[in-house]
């Protein structure tokens, strides 16, 4: 009995240490239009993302990952980027990253999409905190339906960054492609969760 009493504080210490060292959960915020029937969404067109980072090809890279992972869910067919570019040109959309509702409707009609997805890449690349450095990505997406052009889903995710373990033990965090996949997976979780 005495032994078990001694183990309890030790176990509590282990649990507390594990919890404090665990990676921070992804910061997520999402909106779902309660009146939207998402089962009707079969085809999506993903617009070029707004790039607020200094890395020039980052937005296209993240868009590619998102398009592939969205299609890999098996529920939504994603139009090829060349077809989306043709639609943008035909619909004469001046700012393809942020189309107006009227432009959204016109584009969806041209390319035959049920929804249009737009996105903003806010952070991408390495961040530093003291002597530690790690990769980080911050991304927000919006989905607009093709009939009215209104937003039916919106979500954002942030992954990576310097955490307590990096500060204590050093290390450069995870590779950029891993961090990107995790952020996109978070966004897909938000999209498919009700």
């Amino acid at each position: 009995m005495r032994t078990s009493r001694c183990l309890h504080p030790f176990a509590a210490f282990i649990v507390l240490t594990a919890v404090s060292c665990a990676a921070r959960p992804a910061r997520v915020t999402a909106f779902h239009d309660p009146n939207m029937d998402f089962t009707l969404v079969k085809t999506a067109a993903v617009m070029p993302f707004v790039n607020l980072t200094p890395s020039q090809p980052a937005a296209e890279r993240v868009r590619d990952v998102f398009m592939t992972m969205l299609q890999a869910t098996g529920e939504i067919y994603v139009l090829p980027p060349g077809e989306v570019a043709r639609g943008i040109s035909r619909a004469a959309i001046s700012n393809s990253a942020a189309p107006t509702p009227a432009e959204t409707v016109a584009l969806a009609k041209i390319v035959g999409a049920d929804v249009i997805v737009t996105g903003t890449l806010r952070e991408y690349g390495e961040v530093r905190s003291g002597s530690s450095a790690a990769n980080v990505i911050s991304l927000s997406l919006q989905m607009m339906e093709s009939q009215t052009g209104r937003i039916v889903w919106s979500g954002s995710a942030r992954r990576g960054g310097v955490d307590a373990a990096d500060r204590l033990f050093g290390g450069g965090g995870e590779a950029m492609d891993v961090v990107t996949e995790r952020a996109v997976a978070d966004l897909l979780d938000q999209l498919f969760a009700q």
Partner: peptide, 27 residues
Amino acid sequence: AEGISLPQADLVRELLDADVVVAGRVD
């Protein structure tokens, strides 16, 4: 410039008799 569109894929099928068109982007 932005990848192959569907009308372009139709044209490639017509002119090259291709079943599959592979296109992509190197970043």
